[in-house]
Amino acid sequence: MMRRFFLISVPYLWLLALFLVPFVIVLKISLSDVALARPPYMPQFDWATGIGAFLSELDFENFTWLTEDDLYWKAYLSSLKIALISTFFTLLVGYPMAYGMARAPQEWRPTLMMLVILPFWTSFLIRVYAWMGILSNEGFLNQFLLWTGVISEPLTILNTNSAVYIGIVYTYLPFMILPIYSALERLDGSLIEAAEDLGCSRLTAFWLVTIPLSRPGIIAGSFLVFIPVLGEFVIPSLLGGSSTLMIGKVLWEEFFSNRDWPVASAVAVVLLLILVIPIVLFQRNQQKQQEAEQ
């Protein structure tokens, strides 16, 4: 009994102290006011005045501020837009790859799988950095395009949203490929044959059978890309330009440059509220899939 209590309580307390409590603090600070003090917000909890006085000083001013200053809601919208578009492109690149892997000879598949996972183990930062040298004005892509004669003037790609899209597709591709691959690999080949037997051409069989049956994989992959991209910071700050608005970047700057902790906290709380929807949908998709397998 002691042992069970110990097993449960140690990780439980750890997560309470270092996950839940910090969260409550964020929530509390988001309701506080900015102050020229250390730490730079108020009110501070004071045992003398009691909890009533403390609570009465909290308000939703920061949230009102978020709706008034158009920087914030523009940043949220632009994050959503970038996340949606880049998820779509990741799917466009990832699906044919996952399909090719699932149709590859059995003995190749572990190697292909490893090739997809390998970049995931190398540093995220380095993978983003690699594109800086490629996309810059005198970078390899421009050199190559000038050399082939496709363009006569170097294209400005780095520090634009296009560079952000490329960076996201590149770094999140494995997250898209793996769930789709596992859905496609499980697909019973006789279903495709049955569709052809019943009069489908290869293309209609793909459209009517393969796509619908890999849908759980597509949904899982899309959420695995969409959710983290929404709060992405490194890619927009390295590949994006000053016009690239993403909420992760805004939060970072609000905190480190403006030192406005209450607003940064409010930004975080709203971002989380936005994320709840896709997370719940994702969870439901995974659950449905699990039930279907049983």
Binding site: L251, A264, L272
Partner: peptide, 15 residues
């Protein structure tokens, strides 16, 4: 697992 890193970082710092 799904928490944006910026939020995790911010909340821990505040703690």
């Amino acid at each position: 697992l799904v928490m944006p890193e910026v939020i995790t970082g911010l909340s821990l710092l505040l703690l």
